[in-house]
Design a protein around this nucleic acid. Structure first.
Length: 272
DNA sequence: ACGGATGTTCGCGC
DNA sequence: CGCGCGAACATCCG
C-alpha cells in the first residue's frame, strides 16, 4: 500500500498510539522482515521501553525509544501498523507486535513480507545507508524545481521511472508518480532528459499537490486502527482508471507499461 | 479455475 | 555506470 502519504499516516498513528505509553512486551515470529537484523533483539530491546520520537523519510519510518534503541521500518508493498484493542483478536499476518501497558497491542502486519524492520541505535538511524541514499523528501525538504530539472536531465529513463527513483526524490511510488504526471500534463514515457525547465517547475508543484491531495483525502478518520474495512473505491484521478474517461477532458484513459509498472495516462492531456 | 496483476526494493547481467 | 529484468511473497480479480 504504502507510498509517502501512507507512511506519513503510519508515523502519525504510531506517535498517537505509543506516545506516553510503556511497552510491556514485544515479540515477533521468525520471518523475512527481520532480514539483516534479529527478531530476538527486537523483543529484548523494546521490552519496557517508551517512545522518544518517530520520523519519516521517503517511505522509511525511523522510530526511536528513550532507552536508546531505534527501529528502521519499511512497509514494503503490504506493510501496515494497526492498533488492536485489549482482548481483541489479532488480525492475520502479524509479523511483530508491541503489547502496551494499557493492554492494547500495536502490531505490524505484512502479508507479502516485502517490508522490513531492523534494530539499530536510535542515534544512528539517520546515518544508515538506506536513509543517506535517499533524495530530498518532498514534505520535509520541499521539491526544488531547478534541482529536479537537473537530475531529470541526466537520465534517459522514462520520466515516470525516474520519479520513482528514491535517490532522486524520496517517497513517490507508482500512484503518486502517475498522478503527478497527469496533473503536470506530461506523458509518463517521455525521456526524463526531455523535460524542460518549465515542465520541471510544473512537475514540482504537481508532486506536492498530489501528495497533499492524497494526505487530505486519506486523513479523515482513524482508518489505521484495525477494522475490516470495506473495499474503498479508487480515490485517485487516473491511477487505475484505464478505460475510463479523463476527469479533465473526457478522453479515454490509456495505460502503458514502464519499468515493469503499469502507468495510466490521458493521451490528450499528456501528449508525447 | 488459473493466469496475471498488485501501492517496493534489491541484485544480477549486459 | 545506467538500465532492464526477475525475484522475494500472498491475495484478489476476471
Amino acid at each position: 500500500m504504502p507510498e509517502l502519504p501512507e507512511v506519513e499516516f503510519a508515523a502519525r498513528a504510531l506517535r498517537r498510539w505509543l506516545g506516553g505509553r510503556r511497552i510491556a512486551s514485544a515479540d515477533a515470529p521468525e520471518s523475512r522482515i527481520f532480514r539483516g537484523s534479529d527478531r530476538k533483539e527486537f523483543s529484548r530491546v523494546l521490552q519496557g521501553e517508551s517512545l522518544d520520537w518517530i520520523e519519516r523519510r521517503g517511505k522509511y519510518l525511523l522510530i526511536a525509544f528513550r532507552g536508546g534503541a531505534g527501529l528502521l521500518n519499511h512497509l514494503g508493498m503490504t506493510g501496515k501498523w494497526v492498533r488492536v484493542p485489549p482482548g481483541a483478536p489479532l488480525p492475520s499476518h502479524v509479523r511483530a507486535r508491541l503489547e502496551l501497558d494499557s493492554g492494547e497491542v500495536v502490531a505490524y502486519r505484512d502479508t507479502r513480507l516485502f517490508g522490513r524492520i531492523a534494530v539499530h541505535r536510535a542515534d544512528e538511524l539517520f546515518s544508515l545507508p538506506e536513509i543517506r541514499g535517499l533524495g530530498p523528501d518532498p514534505l520535509v525538504d520541499g521539491v526544488d524545481a531547478a534541482r529536479l530539472h537537473e537530475r531529470l536531465a541526466r537520465s534517459q529513463r522514462p520520466v515516470k521511472v525516474a520519479l520513482m527513483d528514491q535517490a532522486l526524490l524520496a517517497g513517490l511510488g507508482n500512484i503518486q508518480a502517475t498522478e503527478a504526471l497527469f496533473l503536470a500534463g506530461i506523458h509518463p514515457a517521455r525521456p526524463a532528459s526531455s523535460i524542460s525547465e518549465k515542465e520541471a517547475k510544473e512537475l514540482a508543484s504537481a508532486i506536492l499537490e498530489s501528495l497533499q491531495h492524497t494526505l487530505k483525502i486519506q486523513g479523515e478518520g482513524d482508518s489505521i486502527t484495525y477494522v475490516e474495512e470495506p473495499r474503498a473505491e479508487n480515490p485517485f484521478r487516473i491511477y487505475g482508471r484505464a478505460g475510463s474517461p479523463c476527469p479533465r477532458c473526457g478522453t479515454t484513459i490509456e495505460k502503458i507499461e514502464l519499468g515493469g509498472r503499469t502507468s495510466a495516462f490521458c493521451p490528450r492531456c499528456q501528449p508525447r
